[in-house]
Design a protein around this nucleic acid. Structure first.
Length: 153
DNA sequence: GCCAACGTTGGC
DNA sequence: GCCAACGTTGGC
């Protein structure tokens, strides 16, 4: 199943992932998003890498799920912004998937373009008030976003 | 920086 | 269990 994952590029961008090759998707502190990572994402699943709070916000490229879910180490790091002192060490509350770099689009597909595309009507990302940072994507929507990212009209 | 929309917490 | 207060997300 294809997915969309949001990251603020000031924190972690598609370029950061390209440099790193693979990375743990740290810092998710929402139960629904965690459950997707823990229970539903499978190695090899494709991911739209979305830049939020960016100029412009939009889909910046592709990644894929890599390996098995792991406990998110930042929950146990007092110096991390994502530190969660209430998470039990024996049963870590927060889980992350690992992702691998696949492709950086020639240019970001801006949110404005996604919203204006007739083929993307109904895409959860585009619903008002929608702010889930990890979410499933229809195969048809995924295909269309990739086409936009690769420059097709 | 503003603020709408949403999620979480905690008093009762 | 309700819901007000508070915190966060993320577009603009």
């Amino acid at each position: 199943m294809p997915w969309l994952m949001k990251s603020e590029p000031d924190v972690f961008s598609i370029d950061d992932l390209e440099r790193a090759g693979t990375s743990g998707w740290e810092g998710v502190r929402n139960y629904q998003a965690r459950n997707f990572m823990r229970d539903a994402m499978k190695p090899g699943d494709e991911v739209l890498f979305y830049h939020s709070n960016a100029e412009p916000s939009g889909v910046a490229g592709l990644a894929k799920v890599h390996g098995a879910p792991l406990p998110d180490p930042t929950q146990f790091d007092p110096k991390s912004d994502y530190h969660d002192p209430t998470s039990p060490k024996a049963e870590p509350r927060w889980v992350m998937v690992q992702v691998a770099f696949v492709e950086k689009f020639a240019r970001v597909v801006p949110l404005e373009v996604l919203k204006a595309d007739p083929k993307l009507v109904g895409m959860p990302l585009l619903q008002k008030g929608q702010r889930l940072s990890v979410q499933p994507v229809d195969a048809a929507h995924f295909k269309r976003v990739v086409a936009l990212g690769r420059g097709k009209k």
